[in-house]
Amino acid sequence: MKMSIKRKTLYGAVALLLFTCPCIPGNAADGPEMVELGSLTQYYEPVQFDHELHVGMIESNECAICHHHTLGTPVLDPVCQRCHASSGETDFVACRDCHPAKRFSAEYLAVLEEDINLFHLEKPGLQGAFHQNCLECHKEYGAPTGCQDCHVRSEKGDKFFYSGEYAPEPADNSSGH
């Protein structure tokens, strides 16, 4: 079932790719084909992110949808445009280069504290960045949004969620009221 959804998406994407083929710009090819997202995994297997597939779904100059201003393509959000209309390409473009893996560690909070001129106070951590960015788009375009549509849950995850073979016995309603 889940696989079929995935496959459907894949077919759709391939179709989209075929139709928009002539428009694929040179710079998109600079990106990687597949990216393994697994630095944070605890309860799930690493995600194989098909970068090429997603690049194929957008216009050539729409990298900012995910990469904000870092690739030099025009930023789309008018609020961002105020500063980043022509801020140019940056040296680092991977998500993890800007979005910290440990967003709420004491060390990182101290870094934020020190920089009194810092504007992006609310910049999410890496995990937040992935799920906020990916999921919003998936919701918007009707792509899968369930946790296990993208992630394969490990046994540790089943245990964590009390699911699968760790599911609780159907209990009588004894938990107070």
Partner: peptide
């Protein structure tokens, strides 16, 4: 929280 609904600070 995967979505970083919560900000700690």
């Amino acid at each position: 929280c995967p979505r970083e609904v919560m900000t700690f600070g």
